[in-house]
Amino acid sequence: MSETIETDVVIVGAGPVGLFAVFELGLLDVRCHLIDILDKPGGQCAELYPEKPIYDIPGFPIITGQGLTDNLLAQIKPFSPTFHLGEMVVSLERLEDGRFRVQTDAETVFLTKVIVIAAGGGSFQPKRPPVPGIEAFEGRSVFYSVRKMDAFRDHDILIVGGGDSALDWTLNLQPIARSVTLMHRRDAFRAAPDSVNKMRALAEEGKLNLVFGQVTGLKGGDGLIEAVEIIDNDDKTHHLPATRLLPFFGLTMKLGPIADWGLNLHENLITVDTEKFQTSEPGIFSIGDINWYPGKLKLILSGFHEAALMAQAASRIVFPDKKVLFQYTTSSTSLQKKLGVA
């Protein structure tokens, strides 16, 4: 279902820097919508290293990626940002009235005065196994996610991986598939023990095939696979008949559609000025790991600084006639009211 949302600012990326931008913009009465391809806020901090300690956040001698995310979410709560999770921005265009039209792959449409790109290392996308010729089958018989279960009905499905995605889809697709084979490189699974137990029970009943090995090639044509060549743990090659392949090898980061927005880039990073952190396109700002300027350091704390300066410039676009008064949260009653503490 498509809907159109009119707003002041759309922030692309809900990692630590995108979250802190909500705070800095909020103090200046600018309301935000955030879009992130992940199903949760926090970006790399939440996805790659939720339990890893970070030692260089000012004021926190040690904090985990998830701890920092939770604190930032608490800090921006007074500004009630709207999150659009599990969505990726696919198009961006400037309208005649100077605003931007932004559309996501879930067909959410935004009309916004300002765009802030805080997309870190880019969007998280499924890792493609380096199997020769796999591209030709993608989207027709090789899939990295399941959008419509019906596309798998009555097929011979090979699922590869040992984590929650692999196990969840093995269990969910088994009842509607013609056959399901789960292949993993070893007899140990990272997935939730309950799913692993259910999977093993089905394998014992003969309702799914459990094999150990790795994919080495694909057989078929015209985008449709017929068999998957695998090598087992004794280095023997086999051919498994399959009409659908679902590899689950985790996520990698790609710049994605941002590369096509006509912004000046420097080695796949977005060039910005160091006064406003604005891109080559007025009204589009970029902060955090995804931007570049001379002397750039990819540190979370640098992204926080960039968010503060960006917010000043962005608020002048959102409220062209309003005088921006510089104030401190320690002493300004008006800021404290916005934060709900005065």
Partner: peptide
């Protein structure tokens, strides 16, 4: 590390 090797290829 063994878990993370699941995401590597040609292990």
């Amino acid at each position: 590390e063994e878990d993370m090797l699941d995401f590597a290829h040609d292990v």
